[in-house]
């Protein structure tokens, strides 16, 4: 059986989800969840697998969104071409973001990517032909012939399959030789290099891959009704929300990132009225998660599974060590 088949089954099952939604707003929320899944799964590649710090992911999404908007509005490209073109632009951006990662680590890298993130937002806010602070309007929805996906219900059948495929690709990468190389870099760069892993190359690939995901998410956001982008949707607050998805879900766990994206998007929506307190709460949850549940929900599930599976083996080892 080809490994992609179960995922096609997943798409088929998820196709029924909009039927149980009651309002167009619920359907809109489903689409936002799917887009955030793409974003979180992509961030998880660079942060969770390769262990690289970045707080610039939202800025890459912004670049993808605006690139896609420009390609379709100013150059007249259909969505199906604007999407890959925007992703290609973001791949280039990912490469640029990745270069400092070859020299910087930890907090310094966070600062460098933060600088990028804020400057992208500020440049967009000041650029007239990108709509400046007023926002970019009139981005057309995708269409196949005369069939236009302008409703949230129709758009769901664009974003959901892409999100599922994004998860599949992430799994395919994680389970491949390249995924192991990423994790080895996260664990110990010196030992990875001594094992023949080209550390710099794979770091850059990780940044490019996650930028491709961010670009895809950005483009999907741009063409979703009402086809409007605002630079303030790509602020530091959005980055905190995104980090929460990945950290709460469990860094390095693909399903964790998916669960995190779903949970945080819904919580985000439910707490809209408490906007001013939300960031403080999200920030607090991140700190608490890092302190008391550093591997997130995914890590907890894995620990539980590992403990069950290896309890006997470990007991035997302990007994052997205790024996003189």
């Amino acid at each position: 059986m080809h490994p992609v088949l179960p995922w096609l089954g997943g798409i088929a099952v998820l196709s029924f989800l909009p039927l149980i939604t009651r309002t167009a707003y619920d359907q809109y929320l489903l689409n936002v969840i799917a887009i955030n899944v793409v974003l979180a799964v992509g961030l998880n590649i660079v942060k969770g697998f390769a262990g690289q710090v970045t707080v610039g992911h939202v800025a890459v999404m912004a670049i993808g969104a605006y690139a896609s908007a420009v390609f379709s509005v100013h150059l007249g490209l259909p969505f199906w071409l604007a999407l890959p073109a925007a992703m290609a632009v973001c791949a280039g951006v990912g490469l640029l973001v990745g270069i400092p990662a070859l020299r910087l680590e930890g907090a310094y890298l966070a600062l460098a990517t933060l600088g990028l993130a804020e400057s992208v937002r500020i440049v967009i806010s000041g650029t007239e032909w990108l709509g400046a602070a007023m926002g970019f309007e009139g981005i057309p929805p995708p269409h196949i012939g005369g069939f236009v996906m302008e409703t949230h219900f129709r758009y769901y059948f664009v974003v959901m399959p892409i999100a599922v495929m994004g998860i599949y690709i992430s799994f395919a990468i994680l389970r491949s030789d390249m995924g192991r190389a990423f994790k080895a870099i996260r664990e110990d760069q010196l030992a990875a290099a001594a094992s023949g892993v080209h550390v710099a190359k794979f770091k850059l690939i990780a940044f490019v891959l996650s930028a491709l995901y961010a670009g895809c998410a950005g483009s999907l956001k741009a063409h979703m009704a009402p086809g409007y982008l605002n630079p303030n949707d790509y602020s530091l607050q959005e980055m905190v929300t995104l980090l929460l998805m990945v950290i709460f879900g469990g860094i390095g766990h693909i399903w964790g990132a998916v669960i995190g994206a779903i949970a945080v998007t819904i919580i985000n929506d439910l707490t809209q009225d408490y906007y001013t307190y939300r960031m403080a709460i999200f920030g607090g949850v991140i700190v608490l998660t890092v302190m008391y549940m550093p591997r997130g929900i995914g890590g907890m599930i894995e620990d539980f599974w590992v403990r069950k599976r290896f309890a006997a083996l470990r007991a035997a080892t302990k007994a052997r060590q205790a024996a003189p």
Binding site: S176, D177, R180, K183, E187, D188, A191, I205
Partner: peptide, 27 residues
Amino acid sequence: RIFEGMSVIENMMVGHHGLTGYSPLAA
């Protein structure tokens, strides 16, 4: 400097990285 966050067999497979021959795209 073993890769503590990876399984034993994964540690070994990273060691074999230079001799594992397929492209990520094929994966």
